[in-house]
Design a protein around this nucleic acid. Structure first.
Length: 476
DNA sequence: AGGCAGCGCAC
DNA sequence: GTGCGC
DNA sequence: GCCT
């Protein structure tokens, strides 16, 4: 076994256990790193809830030969070690004559990079599959999309096909059929309004987030909510009495009176449209309406012509492409953009960068809001500085302008950044939550897993990076 | 009652 | 310091 | 908004 990184601090694998294992392993002569070290770390212990296969895919560009072992495998290994070796109370240690780790059989908790198709190969499979749809116009693809919502046959089937083989998509419901459009249409409007009201309402930001979460849950359900199964929502975390009441009202009367009341407020309609401009948030939207007396996007455009200063540079770009940015990007086009970026990168910096397109694209969505591409230099980068670009791109004539984000991270941070920017939000949040809760269990220096080159790494620093980490497989 | 993430950039 | 998007 |  080469140098090991125990991915402690995630999900079910506590720092404490990680430390415990690290001690056991190092007594047997293993070297344990405090964090993933590209090119050096050879083995990664993967917590429950993260699929080793996903990690393998993520890490493969960073090290040629990384093996991912599941936590369950490690537990088994340690159990056998303790029972066979019988030295669990032996503090004095040395590495004197106890049994070696009696390793359990590897399947199914073991993944090796070379045992799996490389990510690139998988991409090509997808590429072929996309080709058929790639020739359709956006409108046609859209139609297919919406048709699927009405009559559940079409959309569902083709997506199932697309989803089947993708490890990184297995647990994701992105792009699946929404069986609860009858509810989410109302709640989406409500969310937009809460977004707009922002700080007007006490805890507005979090109220909005709560509804957002709720809508995600509804979208992910494999069935439609009706009066009979309404109660099944009750036990879900994050769904309280207000939300159940809302759903009850919609199911009963087909309307949401609270939403209607909010929509009647003066300026709501205008502000909602302003906020759809990239870079315009609640405050700017309200100022445009109340201070500048602007009532619509077309008025806003006129006013910006005479007074460009009322919007900043980014917002003006957002306004210019207002309509285009509302459109979702077909998966096939995201892939083309990725390819174009890859070509450009190769032309400028041949062989110097690896890149991954993250966001909902990586979660397997059939349509995305923007394109989010992460880079890392292949060569050893000593610092963890990052850089990013938030801008606009277009493939060429006949294509729409699209939002494009480019972010560069060090090779060390790259896998975690990829994980993080793959989302979803909700999943990210839950990990963050977890990380904070356990911040107290900061790693003592002497317990720094005996890492070699990275001994000085503090938990806080490591935590910051690790708090990145979320896995698409963990999403509900 | 208090927390719900926190950062960098533009202004 | 605020607003915004990430 | 919901949760502790």
């Amino acid at each position: 076994m080469g140098p090991i990184w125990i991915m402690a601090g995630y999900g079910s694998l506590s720092i404490r256990m990680g430390r415990h294992w690290a001690q056991i392993l190092s007594r047997h002569g293993a070297r344990v790193h405090a964090r993933f070290w590209p090119g050096k770390t050879r083995v990664v212990i993967v917590p429950k809830g993260l699929a080793p296969g996903i990690l393998t895919q993520l890490l493969s560009p960073c090290g040629d030969d990384v093996t991912c072992l599941h936590q369950a495998w490690m537990e088994e290994a340690v159990r056998r070690c303790l029972s066979l070796g019988g030295r669990k109370r032996d503090r004095e240690g040395g590495r004197a004559g106890t049994a070696d780790l009696a390793l359990p059989p590897l399947n199914p908790y073991y993944y090796h990079v070379n045992a799996l198709p490389r990510p690139e190969e998988k991409m090509n499979v997808a590429a072929g599959k996309e080709k058929r749809r790639g020739r359709q116009t956006t409108e046609e693809a859209e139609k297919e999309e919406e048709g699927g919502e009405g009559e559940s046959g079409l959309g569902g089937r083709h997506r199932q096909l697309e989803t089947a083989k993708w490890t990184c998509r297995e647990a994701s419901r992105a792009g699946l059929l929404n069986h609860n459009v009858h509810l989410t249409v109302f709640l989406d409007e409500l969310i937009a309004i809460y977004d707009m009201l922002g700080s007007d309402i006490a805890g507005g930001r979090y109220r909005r987030a709560q509804y957002h979460r709720f809508v995600q849950i509804l979208r992910g359900l494999p069935f439609a909510i009706n009066k009979d199964n309404l109660r099944s929502l009750k036990k879900k975390r994050g769904i309280g009495s207000s939300m159940l009441k809302d759903i009850g009202e919609i199911l009963e009367y087909g309307r949401l009176s609270r939403l209607e009341a909010l929509k009647r407020r003066e300026g709501v309609e205008a502000c909602l449209s302003f906020q759809k401009v990239w870079g315009v948030g609640p405050a700017t939207a309200r100022a445009l309406f109340t201070h500048d007396k602007i009532q619509s996007i077309s008025e806003l455009r006129a006013r910006v012509r005479s007074h460009p200063g009322i919007l900043n540079e980014n917002q003006r770009v957002g306004l210019r492409y207002y309509e285009e940015f509302q459109e979702r990007i077909p998966r096939s086009e995201v892939r083309k953009i990725e390819e174009r970026v890859r070509e450009g990168t190769e032309a400028l910096y041949p062989g110097m960068f690896i890149l991954t397109t993250c966001g909902s694209y990586r979660r397997g969505a059939s349509h995305c809001g923007d394109v989010d591409i992460l880079f890392a230099p292949i060569s050893d980068a000593t610092d963890d500085k990052s850089d990013s670009y938030f801008g606009v791109c277009r493939l060429g004539d006949g294509y729409l302008h699209r939002r494009l984000d480019l972010k560069v991270y060090s090779r060390q941070q790259y896998p975690f950044a990829v994980l993080y920017f793959t989302g979803s939000d909700h999943f990210n949040r839950s990990m963050r939550c977890w990380a904070i809760k356990h911040k107290g269990e900061a790693l003592e220096k002497e317990h720094d897993y005996g890492g070699d080159s990275d001994r000085e790494e503090t938990w806080d620093r490591a935590n910051k990076k690790e708090a990145w980490a979320l896995s698409p497989s963990e999403m509900e």
